[in-house]
């Protein structure tokens, strides 16, 4: 029973500090102000060539953006800016 309590305590503490960590995580001013075109050039090439904006339509880019947000663990802000840029440039 004691071991169970210790485990519960450790999990609670981990969750508490995890939540604190997440709450304190913010991008720097320079990162937050990056435009979509720059994020597109920086993030896509980590795995493959940067896609041509004309490859997909606006609504298709929204699906691709969602897919890549999950696949590449991009933040919501990064994906929103990249998709906005691609929709504007296609």
């Amino acid at each position: 029973m004691k071991v169970k309590h210790v485990k519960l305590f450790l999990v609670s503490v981990s969750l508490f500090f995890g939540a604190l960590f997440l709450a304190s995580c913010t991008p720097s001013q320079a990162q937050a102000s990056k435009p979509g075109a720059l994020l597109w050039g920086e993030n896509c090439v980590r795995c493959h060539n940067a896609p041509s904006p004309s490859a997909f339509s606006d609504s298709q880019w929204e699906v691709v953006g969602k897919h890549m947000r999950i696949r590449a663990s991009l933040t919501a802000d990064e994906v929103d800016k990249i998709v906005e840029f691609l929709k504007m440039a296609n």
Binding site: L22, C25, T26, P27, S28, A30, Q31, I70, A72, S73, L74, T75, E78
Partner: peptide, 15 residues
């Protein structure tokens, strides 16, 4: 459970 987290100038991802 997965995601990406900004860390100032840097970034991390987790799963």
């Amino acid at each position: 459970l997965r995601g990406g987290i900004p860390l100032g100038e840097a970034k991390m991802t987790y799963s």
